[in-house]
Design a protein around this nucleic acid. Sequence first.
RNA 1: GUGGUUGUAGCUCAAUUGGUUAGAGCGCCGGACUGUGGCUCCGGAGGUUGCGGGUUCAAUCCCCGUCAAUCACCCCA
Length: 430
Amino acid sequence: MRIQALPGFRDFYPDTMAIRSHVFGAMRRVALRYGFEEYDGPPLEPLELYTQKSGDEIVAQLYHFRDKGDREVALRPEMTPTLARMVAPKATALKKPIRWFTIPQLFRYERQQRGRLREHFQLNCDLIGETGPLGDAEIVALAIDVMRELGLTAADVRVRMSDRRLLSGILAALGFDAALVPLAFQALDKVGRSEYAGRRQALIDRGVAAEPIARLEALGSIRSFEALELAFPGLALGGELRATFAAIEAMGLGEFLDLDLTIVRGLAYYTGTVFELFDAGRSLRAICGGGRYDHLLAALGGVDMPALGFGMGDVVLTELLKEKGLLPTGGTAADVFIAQVTADDRPFALGLAHQLRDLGFRVEYAIGDQALGKQFRLADARGARVVLVVGPDDRARGEVGVKDLARGIQGAVKLDAVAAELTALGCMRA
RNA sequence: GUGGUUGUAGCUCAAUUGGUUAGAGCGCCGGACUGUGGCUCCGGAGGUUGCGGGUUCAAUCCCCGUCAAUCACCCCA
């Protein structure tokens, strides 16, 4: 019986690890460009960190157990509680707004499907201590720029945005009782989908009349602030969201944005802007989701600070990049290969290899004494750019043979000029 | 958690109405090839046909269970 990875868990072989590093690299570069600082916390947390405020669904899907010290512990299913726990004790000392990001591995015990595993990595970016709509714009723009950094355009991904403050205003105008707002949000989330019928019935059962329900359904077709104004004249709704849209447009990223009032997000704690990133073809799950959660830190960490952020999972994003042909090809192996002609060349080859490695080149050579042809085949299989040929004759002249594998051209290069020649041939230095 | 589909070599796939020693391509290792790679040719390793049980003279094939993958639900990151 061969032991394999647990269901929903992934092995990252070098080829898939290269993809992961590519995606993480883009995430990090963009977050750093926005002035965000990286942090991390423990993957194992006290169970109660999640049972208190996370949704029932999250708690039901926790990986949890009792440790040897008789503590109830859980693998983290989301990052926000950890963030709240970490920020709280330093809240007064940290300069606001706090801009933090992290790429944690998160765990949930649920049945896996395409784009949904039992573990995934998720870029989390949070902006804490800022109430204005420009903060919202900053967060959404960061998410968009990660897409752009990876080669995706407005034709590939869409940002669908709404605002719970705006939605609450609409629901009030439609006569929904405050107690019915959560149920109405759930229904709105499902408008246009097969599951909507059940939510609609739930509203009817609670005594909601046909007309408010019809107008709730109609929110799905409102795609612009003009249409919103037309549908609800004189209400002056959505000022914050407009300001956020305007800021993102001023950044030149407006083409990614869609106003979509059916975006409410499943989690209960969102208080303002809510947004999701989808592939334009809508064939995949959400790439990213986030919003404003102004009271969550108080609930989790005991410090009342406005905050907003998003989580961007690696699984769906990588699926999309694969569909669009935007994944990197080629290995990450050495691009300089040193081939020795005779066994006597070994000490010289080792010295040269080490000098070049000290300079940052990625260097490999055959471990055993092998025929030159075989060494070339290994270099070729590795995808090396250059083979340095070291033989008795070359050594006698103080040179090495430098062969550009792609062009098949070889020349003799003096020892002190090898590094420059490698750079000229496109070999990278770490 | 519910239902459907699919499991044969590292990968992609074959194998006659159930029939004898489960094959091929790619990949991997070795050789032709001891101062030069990609191409070609030759050879080799690699399988409890996911696992367990049943029917049968005989099961990769039929039946049951189970595990896994996948799709649709449920829900969601």
